[in-house]
Computed example of a mutant assay.
Amino acid sequence: MSNVWFITGSSRGLGRSLTTAVLAHGDQVAATARNPEQLNDLVAEYGSRILPLTLDVTDTAQVEQAVAAALTHFGHLDVVVNNAGFGIIGAAEAYSEEQVRSQLETNLHAPIAVTRAVLPHLRERRRGHILQISSGGGRVGNPGVSIYQAAKFGLGGFSEALAKEVAPLGIRVTCVEPGGFRTDWAGASMSYAPEVAGYETTVGALKHMFQSGAYVPMGDPDKAAQVLLALVAHPKPPLHLLLGSDSLGLVQQAEADRSAELEEWIPVSRSTDHDAAENFLDTDLGKQFLKGK
């Protein structure tokens, strides 16, 4: 059975690899991009199975128009991929207000807006799969990418809560968390905040690595695209999916560090409960939260 996909940021990087793989698999795709003419070669090869759509994901009105156009053309949607985004490097205090807002609007508000736009349709059909292309940096904080990672951590939290809300409706959610892939994320699409003295060994070291070409990503976007194709066919897809041994290694270490810190501070965490309070997990609210696991 073929699926209809809605993919943002489809003209380059992972989005381009996924769009190409989806079409080669025999599926159909509404492929959104700021410059959809970059998809002309795919239109020439696959005809009406691809619908290129102009979309600035930070424009909510355009998001709603693009979703409506996809539904008009294909009749329904099965898989929604929030892929559009870009990175920025700098010290937290160095970013301009515009840079901060741009990161949060593109990497957090936009996927939320797309998700909200498609949910009424998916809810009515009682089926669908939403893939949020986050990052291993949505699970591990690193110097130099604080604002980018603020957006990705937020996307992860939104996706976890959303997954519990929509599971009874037959809608699945997966937060895909890649490491570095051989796209232009670390190259042409990367931007930088002004330098600030004092961060030479942290932010400065990361910036030098990226700008010098010393950083060679480990991931292959074409392989990732094949994984995502298989993922939507899986009967029990994960809520979180790390892609790449770099992302996997960093998250494994971060989870171990968090677990050790949590255990060390458990007595302090419990010390603030009221003397008359019962075990939270035995309360009605605690039980309600556990039901959503």
Rank of each mutant, 00 (worst) to 15 (best):
A110N: 03
A110M: 00
P111R: 03
P111A: 03
P111M: 03
I112C: 08
I112V: 14
V114Q: 11
T115Q: 08
T115R: 09
R116D: 12
R116Q: 14
R116W: 08
R116P: 07
A117N: 11
A117M: 08
A117C: 11
V118A: 06
L119R: 02
P120S: 03
P120G: 05
H121G: 01
L122E: 10
L122K: 01
R123N: 13
R123A: 12
R123K: 13
R123E: 15
E124S: 14
E124A: 14
R125E: 15
R125Y: 02
R126V: 07
R126T: 10
R127S: 12
R127H: 15
G128K: 10
H129M: 04
I130D: 07
I130N: 11
I130G: 03
I130V: 09
I130R: 12
L131M: 05
Q132G: 06
Q132Y: 09
Q132A: 09
Q132V: 00
Q132P: 10
Q132W: 05
I133E: 12
I133L: 12
I133C: 04
S134Q: 09
S134D: 09
S135Y: 02
S135M: 04
S135L: 10
G136D: 04
G136F: 01
G137E: 01
G137C: 10
R139T: 07
R139N: 12
V140H: 13
V140P: 08
V140Y: 03
V140E: 13
G141Q: 10
P143D: 00
P143E: 00
P143Q: 05
G144Q: 11
G144V: 00
G144W: 03
G144Y: 05
V145C: 14
I147L: 07
Y148E: 04
Y148A: 01
Y148W: 04
Q149G: 12
Q149W: 02
Q149T: 11
A150C: 02
A150M: 10
A150K: 08
A150E: 09
A151H: 04
F153C: 01
L155T: 03
G156I: 03
G157R: 04
G157D: 07
G157N: 06
F158P: 10
S159E: 00
S159G: 11
E160K: 11
E160T: 15
E160H: 14
A161E: 07
L162C: 10
L162Q: 09
K164D: 15
K164R: 15
K164G: 12
K164I: 09
E165H: 04
E165K: 10
E165I: 00
E165W: 02
